[in-house]
Design a protein around this nucleic acid. Structure first.
Lengths: 234, 234
DNA sequence: GTCCGATATTTTGCATTCATTTTTTGGAAG
DNA sequence: CTTCCAAAAAATGAATGCAAAATATCGGAC
């Protein structure tokens, strides 16, 4: 508890699965493993990234590790300090605000594009998850609700049929995942109900393939989500 | 002519300025230099990235160069082939389509955010460049027109006041800059006039701080730009 | 007891080296 | 002359080595 990352550095079992994946290059596998390692919070916010320890943890030398660190820095997950290695990037409230807005913009885009090309089958799938989510909402099952919520947003991004968009979205989602802005909905029943109504509007606009309208709704939906997060966290 | 990159590899003067910048790390400077080198087209589309030659060109060893290559690969500028090094990523028509749409989405977002926070001085600056651009349009000065056009879009992104957005936008702009989709406006006078009218609408919506409306206009503006590019290139 | 500075240790950044894989080259067979 | 295969050459991916910088440790002054 007191040491933010030692649990994983010292006591976890053998290296992750990427060493057993010969199909992909070491770099690629290591990059994904390291990204997960950080996104999942094994390193504390602002903590120095311990090169030596991570080399032993992943059974590699410093060269490929440092290559991966440069990439993660370019992704915005860590920051490089000249002659002082890397540290996990701390997200200021301003950073979080920016990330929410950009994700809102990308979701707005995804909704617009999805309206242009979504199939009936894809829409039916989103509708199904939406109804599941509504059931979780009625039962006040936060965990189930969040799972469906995430799935719906992801399905909309996928329905946009734009790999570049999906990759950009995933990058930002990874950065923001470190911040714990959820689980506070329980304290704010009004916001929960509001979010549910917004999702009704999202589904409605998508059903009508009303791209521009859906775009607005999705952006504002993320805006409200951000405000709720800021209200409960700040 | 037959060798796509030798011009720059062999005959350019001493290494770029990053060696004379002690404030920033070698990695950072090299990364920028290498990115420019590729974005500016010194390496042909799909060409192998010659490690050895670039090491000599920039006077560094392979380690920092390879670190930079991994980052550029993550940015989408080049692609890594297992055990076969890197090659400049070729943009398929589908890639270009995707990039245009995502940039349209980001510009739509920028317009929306700009309406929320732009100052009168910032707006006046955009208006000024807009009028300059109109004069170039009347004179049929393509070069001046394009310069102003780029400036306006950049100013809107900056007016959004979102560094994350600006960085994401810059990344995509860098990727697409390799493709020559401009200079064909001259053949399509109708499109030129249409684009000019769209810019009038952009300025009008921005003046009224009509975020949602401006968002739509900007996305469609990019859409039309893409269609014009596809029509002239394909 | 605290603060300051010199020395020792660690860490970082980059160059170099090494094992493997890929590509090229040379030559023989058809 | 073309095709195929083997050996040489080159390039790649990763480990190691080394100088410079940063950090930690220790001893002394106050």
């Amino acid at each position: 508890m007191s040491e933010p990352f030692l649990d994983t550095l010292d006591e976890q079992g053998p290296a992750p699965a990427e060493v057993a994946r010969p199909v992909t290059s070491l770099h690629e596998g290591l990059l994904a493993a390291l990204r997960d390692f950080i996104v999942e919070g094994h390193l504390a916010d602002g903590a120095r990234v311990p090169e030596r320890a991570l080399c032993e943890r992943f059974n590699i030398s410093r060269t490929p590790l440092r290559e991966a660190l440069k990439v993660l820095a370019a992704e915005g997950l860590i920051e490089l300090l000249p002659n002082r290695g890397a540290r996990v990037r701390e997200l200021s409230p301003e950073d979080v605000r920016e990330l929410f807005d950009v994700m809102g913009g990308l979701e707005a885009l995804a909704g617009r594009l999805a309206c242009e090309r979504i199939s009936e089958a894809e829409f039916a799938e989103i509708e199904r998850v939406h109804h599941d989510m509504y059931r979780f909402y009625l039962r006040r099952d936060m965990h189930g609700y969040f799972h469906c919520n995430q799935a719906i947003h992801q399905l909309i991004v996928e329905a946009a049929g734009n790999i570049t968009l999906a990759a950009t979205y995933a990058n930002l989602a990874g950065r923001i995942r470190r911040v714990r802005y959820s689980a506070n909905l329980a304290k704010d029943r009004d916001r929960w109900g509001e979010a549910m109504r917004e999702h009704e509007a999202i589904l409605d606009a998508l059903r009508r393939r009303a791209g521009s309208e859906l775009s607005d709704i999705l952006f504002l939906h993320l805006r409200n989500k951000r405000k709720a997060a800021q209200a409960s966290a700040g």
